[in-house]
């Protein structure tokens, strides 16, 4: 029989933590299917920004992708509640809540023409800047990168009165180099993988949230596979997710330690009133619910699961 080819795109560059896991996954699929399921990788953004990847999936050039929050927001926006600022206190909370709401998220992806194979993370979100930051008000005068088309981040920036510069992620590096952008919100691991960290000698030491990610294939491709290959994809998804999350957390904290030595802290962030920030984030979440970007129902599920976990943990 002919081999099924899964053309798979990601922004992660070849040789990065993520691509290593994907490569191993591709080999495992080819081995377990005896060559009937072949993954062709298009890493490092050669298929374009995440919205471009999704367009190419809709037009049938690609069948799958590894996406960060922005791409997930183009498929099933409510899932982004998991990266709302100041929602979780640690990874254990994230793991507990995710376990509870993942079925709902999987259904959300499926209803929007995608099969969610593996959940992943891109690391803890920090501010990186070419300049120091004496107080938070200064951020209003900064050129903060905002992922073009990302309504979720845009809402939080708006709530803080920050005038962002909207760019595709592939344009961020030259923008940092030419001064079009001077501040980015990113994770230590991604900052190093994408080489942004060389341009940003200042970093906020406190994480705001943990960036989410997902490995997806289109429903059209998934539905066209024979049952055993469908089962194989779903079966390998769990271990892939575990490896991606574990490797990302390990390498992200290594990257944070490394960058902590090589950068200056953005001191303004150390004096932030956490309670006030969390309240502002909560308001933004409510606005996004009203705009039907986030789902009030899923958000309540998250709140309940988090409260249950905290009761059990305390």
């Amino acid at each position: 029989a002919d081999a099924y080819v899964l053309k798979f795109a990601t922004l992660a560059p070849a040789g990065s933590t993520w691509m290593k896991a994907f490569d191993a996954w591709g080999k495992e699929l080819a081995r377990a299917s005896q060559g009937r399921l072949v993954v062709k990788f298009y890493p490092g953004g050669i298929a374009g920004d995440e919205p471009d990847m999704l367009k190419k999936i809709r037009f049938g050039q690609l069948q799958g992708a590894a996406l960060a929050g922005h791409g997930i927001g183009e498929i099933f926006p409510p899932a982004r509640i998991l990266e709302a600022p100041f929602l979780f206190r640690d990874h254990a909370e994230i793991d507990a809540v995710r376990a509870r709401v993942l079925p709902a998220i999987e259904k959300g992806f499926r209803d929007n023409q995608y099969e969610l194979l593996a959940w992943m993370e891109v690391g803890n979100v920090h501010f990186f800047s070419t300049r120091p930051l004496a107080n938070l008000d200064e951020l209003a005068r900064r050129r903060i990168w905002q992922w073009q088309g990302d309504r979720f981040i845009a809402a939080f920036f708006d709530a803080n009165g920050w005038a962002a510069v909207a760019l595709p992620i592939t344009e961020v590096y030259p923008a940092l180099a030419t001064g079009l952008v001077d501040t980015v919100v990113s994770t230590p691991l991604a900052s190093i993988a994408l080489q942004w960290s060389g341009k940003t000698p200042y970093m906020s030491t406190r994480a705001m949230a943990t960036g989410i990610g997902a490995v997806v294939v289109s429903r059209k491709f998934f539905g066209g596979l024979p049952a055993d290959l469908q089962a194989l994809l779903k079966r390998t998804g769990g271990p892939l997710s575990q490896r991606l999350i574990a490797d990302t957390r390990r390498d992200d904290s290594k990257a944070l330690a490394l960058l902590a030595r090589r950068t200056q802290p953005m001191t303004a962030f150390q004096q932030v009133d956490l309670a006030a920030q969390a309240a502002r984030a909560r308001k933004t979440v409510e606005a996004l619910e009203a705009a039907r970007y986030l789902s009030a129902e899923l958000d309540r599920q998250v709140d309940t699961a988090l409260a249950d976990h905290r009761r059990g943990a305390d």
């Binding site: 920004d49 471009d52 367009k55 190419k56 037009f59 050039q61 073009q148 760019l167 592939t170 344009e171």
Partner: peptide
């Protein structure tokens, strides 16, 4: 065996670069 609309997906990327 691809969709010709993909040509325009790329063409539209002319509107993506600030430079």
């Amino acid at each position: 065996q691809l969709d010709s609309a993909l040509l325009m997906v790329e063409f539209a990327r002319l509107a993506a670069s600030p430079n």
